[in-house]
Write a protein that binds this DNA or RNA. Structure first.
Lengths: 346, 346
DNA sequence: TCGATTTTTGCATACGCTTGCAAAAATTGT
DNA sequence: ACAATTTTTGCAAGCGTATGCAAAAATCGA
């Protein structure tokens, strides 16, 4: 009825003098259609400004080519990069992504249920996990989920995560090798599985070495300025001063470092070691030079996307959990040690 | 035919003993339906795990409640925040957002055309502009576009941008008031309209003051490390050393500052002023303290979203361009001046 | 050239929902 | 209790595309 309504395949068919079905085939790669018909149709379509209606196509095909992306951690230092890489990788495979935030009151489950209503072909969940109930709904609907930055084995869901235990072990053994003895652990979110696993690994490694111990554990410290304040608090109590601080975020670690250098005159790394997590660009800057843990985010994103697409295209493949190894990056905030055998320094 | 196919409204209707239309009404807020029927239907829906199919609803209603978000600048320091705020604001109004990247080879127009195929109700374009051709297609389809961070007046498109000329004027007059005389301009992307307008404003202000001049203009310098390298190049030529550097990015400015302090021993702000753009968090950190320009991103995002929604809900409203004022933030990289009248310092 | 084969086309139905319209049921007033 | 009114329901026709099937057209072989 709309006077200015959009042209549809019928309109194009009428103008080109063919049937609607033929128009449809003209816009379906690989469909059976003669060159002559295609030419006519393309001309007509151009004249009418016709674009196939993907909503209608989705309904008919029962595939929306839409992927839901549930983003639960916007303060992640690589948030923008992750998003970019995820959307670009999915675009590459001709999927579109619907992004939804699930912080605060908008619960993960609520968002996931909405995705289902939009008939998404699959979902990537970044830094959160669905409840078992929603997982079951997705399983019933045969819509694959891939968890990124979270382990999904217990949910029978695919996941791509980093080996947090490995991170803890690497940090602990690096500090051990560098003869640090009194560790302080600082983290932002105590509920994060990565933080829990990593802390557990550090604790258990330390337990094996009687001359090393954990002086303090503090949670809820997040960001540069919080780190800067926290180091002042820590240093105020001389009897519990650590000689190594492990942070679950580079930003916080950089704040601590700045506090040491500018306000407290603490010698890093001689007097105090600082280790971050994430290897953000600023950590590598000459004046900062923070020893940290590098997480292979790019590979993890590719893996997550590929896993999702595989799951979409072949519903019979079973969920799988991939775990990536992180890497300790020795920079200026931990002592250099030399290997007595080879003479190499690291 | 699919054995495990999803339940639809027919299935629910059959189970609840009502017609399909009634099921539809049960899931349509405000529709005419008795409590009794609603109860029965809800029970049946729960049993079958039924969720309304929004794709089908969209087809029928000719409204997708989908908004396209074309993101052309992922390196913007606030990229993640902007995305979060945009998606959350739109979610608030019950729209979902499809994000697409338009960097590199994926051209703006191509992405916009795809959005149209997905029957989006509206589009937000961040840091890019469509061609006139696509603008016309959108106008014909009555789908509103809002440009964010770009002026759209010439395209007859709504836009929300910052007053770049005002920024240039503020920078120039601030430097003038602080008695700096020899300016160097450093920018990343010479094609960015903001950079062009801001530069033009600086140039014209400087032209009015014979004792001030522009020593050099350099483009293609982007990021902390690039800034650090650039200041070394600049300082190598003593005869063209500036006494004030204006950067179109805080990150670059911070790199320059670090270069001055750590490598070159340049006294900031006595010997050299540095002004950034964007007021990223790091600029406010105690050890950096960069004088910069603060852009009201949050307000701009709200405005963009509200403008879009207004345009969607009432197609008769005309495109409008909003321009926001930025604010010069005096910190440690420009001299303090005191107002001779009031004695205030700024 | 004619029958056999292949390619292209159109017909008709399905996808799952909304909604105008009219019929049915429930509610109200007297 | 009955007519008048209001609310609820069902019917049926879309929304724009895909696709199985059979008919039509084009191509091929001899």
């Amino acid at each position: 009825m709309n006077i200015a309504r959009r042209a549809n395949s019928q309109d194009v068919a009428a103008l080109a003098g063919v049937s609607q079905a033929t128009v449809s085939r003209a816009f379906t790669p690989g469909a059976s259609i003669s060159d002559r018909a295609r030419k006519k149709i393309e001309a007509a379509a151009a004249k009418l400004g016709y674009q196939p209606n993907i909503i209608a196509r989705s309904l008919s095909k029962r595939r929306s080519r839409l992927v839901g992306l549930l983003f639960a951690n916007w303060t992640h230092p690589k948030a923008a990069d992750l998003l970019k890489n995820i959307t670009e990788a999915l675009t590459e495979h001709d999927y579109k992504v619907i992004v939804q935030s699930a912080t605060g009151s908008r619960l993960t489950d609520e968002v996931l249920r909405e995705f289902l209503r939009y008939q998404v072909d699959g979902v990537i969940v970044f830094s959160a996990a669905p409840t078992a109930e929603i997982s079951a709904e997705y399983a019933r609907a045969q819509v694959p989920i891939v968890l990124l930055n979270q382990n999904g084995q217990s949910l029978n869901t695919s996941s791509v995560s980093v080996d947090a235990t490995g991170i803890g072990n690497q940090i602990a053994s690096s500090l051990l090798a560098r003869s640090y003895k009194r560790l302080a652990l600082i983290s932002a979110n105590p509920k994060s599985q990565i933080v829990i696993d990593m802390t557990k690994a550090i604790v258990s490694t330390v337990a094996e070495h009687p001359h090393m111990r954990i002086i303090s554990q503090q949670t809820g410290i997040d960001g540069y300025e919080a780190g800067m304040r926290e180091i002042e608090n820590i240093w105020k109590q001389p009897e519990t001063r650590p000689d190594a601080i492990v942070c679950t975020s580079d930003n916080t670690a950089l704040g601590i470092l700045a506090g040491c250098r500018q306000n407290l005159g603490i010698k890093v790394p001689e007097e105090l070691a600082i280790v971050g997590l994430g290897d953000i660009p600023a950590s590598a800057w000459q004046d900062q030079s923070l020893s940290t843990i590098k997480i292979p985010h790019d590979e993890m994103v590719s893996k997550a996307v590929m896993t999702l697409i595989t799951g979409i295209e072949d519903p019979s493949v079973q969920p799988e959990s991939y775990r990536y190894q992180a890497e300790f990056i020795q920079r200026g905030t931990t002592r250099i040690i030399s290997n007595p055998k080879t003479g190499e320094t690291q």
